[in-house]
């Protein structure tokens, strides 16, 4: 089965997010910071009347907080309930959050089309991040793209021992 990934960078590392989970890419970074929030919550953004929680992907994956530059972007994700259609159709086995969230990244790269079969399981150690955050690895000629397991990346539970994070 053919799948499409949006690629993004954090420092030197390249990651991919299945476009089925993407809502849009936003360059408006006029965030309202929220004091006392977990360190990976960068702030809140008004996206046409809906409030989006911006998570710093760098901080979340343990690379350290992203520095905002002209190339920084917010990837706004679909909510879990919007993905139900894809789940039903068996097109997607990952999941996002019930809330409107976006991840802040250093920059956006190309789209990658790839067949399911060519995605390899993640090796024990890639780019120094926890393996649980990855669903697989795409090997291109000169780059390795780690495909993100958003269910884990967005999971809020570990951070402050709240209720169990519910995937579907």
């Amino acid at each position: 089965m053919e799948r499409q990934f949006t690629t993004l960078t954090l420092g030197d590392a390249v990651f991919g997010i299945d476009i089925l989970m993407m809502r849009e890419i936003n360059r408006n970074l006029d965030l309202t910071p929220v004091e006392q929030a977990p360190d990976y919550v960068r702030g809140l953004l008004n996206l046409r009347g809906q409030i989006v929680t911006i998570l710093d992907l760098g901080a979340r994956l343990g690379f350290g907080a992203c520095t905002i530059t002209p190339r920084s972007r917010c990837l706004v994700l679909k909510t879990s309930s919007e993905l139900a259609v894809h789940h039903k159709a068996g097109l997607l086995d990952d999941d996002t959050s019930d809330d409107m969230v976006a991840v802040l990244v250093d920059s956006i790269g190309d789209m990658v089309d790839i067949d399911d079969q060519e995605i390899e399981p993640p090796p024990p150690n890639i780019c120094g991040i926890d393996r649980k955050y990855l669903s697989g690895v795409i090997k291109l000629e000169n780059t390795l793209i780690g495909t993100l397991k958003l269910r884990e990346v967005l999971g809020a539970s570990q951070q402050f021992g709240g209720e169990d994070w519910q995937g579907s």
Binding site: Q36, D98, D99
Partner: peptide
């Protein structure tokens, strides 16, 4: 607020 901010 989103679930990420429930602790605030």
């Amino acid at each position: 607020l989103s679930s990420y901010l429930q602790g605030c």
